[in-house]
């Protein structure tokens, strides 16, 4: 599976990751190798098989609609690099 540079950059952009110029070639080679290997799935005898999402077949696991307050509110914001007025502070976003 050949991956183009543009494609790689598009994917990196979707993942919000920057790849530097000197990393690009390495990533392209890695990706191609791994994807070529992953092609094996196309040879597997899977005609007519359903997909499996999770590793067990549980269903309808719900929670009761009952309020539980998380007490340690302070700990929730403690790790924030920047905050103000008990909110996470980020650069200005125009399209809100």
């Amino acid at each position: 599976m050949q991956v183009s540079k543009d494609e790689l950059l598009h994917i990196a952009n979707l993942a919000d990751i920057t790849i530097s110029e000197d990393e690009i070639n390495q990533y392209l080679i890695n990706l191609e190798e791994i994807l070529n290997f992953a092609e094996v799935v196309n040879k597997a005898p899977i005609e007519g098989l359903e997909i499996t999402i999770g590793a067990n077949e549980r269903k309808n696991i719900f929670r009761k609609d009952e309020v539980k307050i998380f007490e340690d509110n302070e700990a929730l914001l403690k790790n924030a690099p920047t905050k103000d007025l008990n909110m996470f502070k980020i650069p200005k976003v125009i399209n809100t």
Binding site: V41, I46, I51, T52
Partner: peptide, 22 residues
């Protein structure tokens, strides 16, 4: 991100889920 992106989902991710059943 690549295997989930449009155009490749069926070829990789969906197939992989079928192989999982296998």
């Amino acid at each position: 991100t690549y295997v989930l992106s449009s155009g490749y989902y069926d070829a990789y991710y969906k197939k992989a889920q079928q192989v999982r059943t296998l």
